[in-house]
Simulated scan of single mutants.
Amino acid sequence: MMKLDGIAAFIATVEETSISAASRRLGLAKSVVSERLAELERSLGVTLLQRSTRKLTLTSAGQAFLSRAQRVMREIEEAAAEVDASAGKLAGPLRISAPVGFGILHLGPAITRFLKDNPAIEMSLELDDNFVDAATGGFDAVLRHGAIGDGRLIARRLARSRRLLVASPNYLVNRGAPVALKDLEDHSGILYANRSGDWRFAVGTGWSVVRPKSALRVNNGIVMRDAALAGLGLALLPSFFVHKEVREGLLTVVDIGWPAEGAELFLTYPRDHGAAAKIKALSESLRASFGDPPYWDIL
């Protein structure tokens, strides 16, 4: 008969890529995790993991079992969370992924507030500028900036964000300030590597696309902001990256007569995550911390 602690050991081992790391995550001795894995395999009558001195590899049976095991454990965790929520208490683990730049600039105080209000929650926050699949990445929820477009996910809106075309005052003195869309093609652009190189502006009832010359491509908004501050070129950035620099006059908002495409911040999680009481509470707390309109859009 399968035991839940064996399933938990299996999932932790796969996600952490080693028994040693899984034992640290679970707070157990390495020998205990190994025995629970062996007991799970005996109960199933198959080998789930191929073990060698260098690495662990999922067998075909292990691969088939993994997604269902993760779903079962999520449902159990959420069922327990619902019971806690009905009793006025939220508790247990909560693993979140978020973009690096936004996490550094804005998540710290907001997460601290949430955890002070819910001291029994054990949060793990991982910052990553690469695409993280909220449905299969092993996280309870993923904070996203931009459109979701994934039917597997539930998306809870946290806040909106304007995108601002900005440059340093020195850059604009040296290169001249663009005043129309066509002018942008003659300027250097600091571009986000994880998006296409296009800049989109709302023109009338449609969209106009500009493809600036690239001075720098990078997958981090803070580095883009710093490049703009150094006078490397124009940058089209969410206001949450540049609101302080704009207020202080270190960056100038460039007005070309049309607003740039905006975006929204969402907390996303798989549809099979059950009631997700902890995620709902986190999204409500983050919305309260960011404000409506969010404090970074009050320039």
Rank of each mutant, 00 (worst) to 15 (best):
Met1Val: 11
Lys3Ala: 05
Gly6Gln: 00
Ala9Gly: 02
Ala21Tyr: 03
Ala22Glu: 02
Arg24Met: 05
Arg25Ala: 09
Leu26Cys: 05
Leu26Lys: 03
Leu28Thr: 00
Lys30Glu: 15
Ser31Glu: 09
Val32Glu: 04
Ser34Cys: 02
Leu37Lys: 10
Leu40Ile: 01
Leu40Arg: 03
Glu41Ile: 01
Leu44Gly: 06
Leu44Ala: 04
Leu48Asn: 14
Ser52Tyr: 08
Thr57Ser: 12
Gly62Arg: 05
Ala64Leu: 14
Ala64Pro: 15
Ala64Phe: 13
Ala64Ile: 13
Leu66Met: 09
Gln70Tyr: 03
Arg71Thr: 14
Ala80Glu: 15
Glu82Thr: 10
Ala85Ser: 13
Gly92Phe: 00
Gly92Thr: 08
Leu94Trp: 04
Ile104Cys: 02
Ile111Pro: 06
Ile111Met: 14
Asp117Ala: 15
Asn118Ser: 01
Asp140Met: 06
Arg144Pro: 09
Arg144His: 08
Ala147Tyr: 07
Arg152Pro: 11
Leu158Trp: 10
Ala159Thr: 12
Arg160Lys: 10
Arg160Gly: 14
Ser161Cys: 08
Pro169Met: 00
Arg175Tyr: 07
Arg175Cys: 01
Leu184Tyr: 06
Leu184Lys: 08
Asp186Leu: 11
Ser196Thr: 10
Gly197Tyr: 08
Asp198Arg: 11
Val203Met: 09
Gly204His: 11
Thr205Cys: 02
Val209Met: 07
Arg211Phe: 07
Arg211Lys: 15
Lys213Pro: 04
Lys213Trp: 02
Lys213Thr: 12
Ser214Ala: 15
Arg217Pro: 05
Val218Arg: 03
Gly221Trp: 02
Val223Asp: 08
Val223Met: 12
Leu232Trp: 10
Pro238Cys: 00
Ser239Glu: 13
Lys244Asp: 14
Arg247Lys: 11
Arg247Ile: 08
Leu251Thr: 09
Leu251Tyr: 03
Thr252Gly: 01
Val254His: 01
Pro259Asn: 05
Ala260Lys: 01
Glu264Arg: 13
Glu264Cys: 07
Leu267Ala: 01
Thr268Glu: 13
Gly274Glu: 09
Ala276Gly: 04
Ala277Tyr: 10
Lys278Phe: 14
Ile279Met: 07
Glu284Asp: 14
Asp297Trp: 01
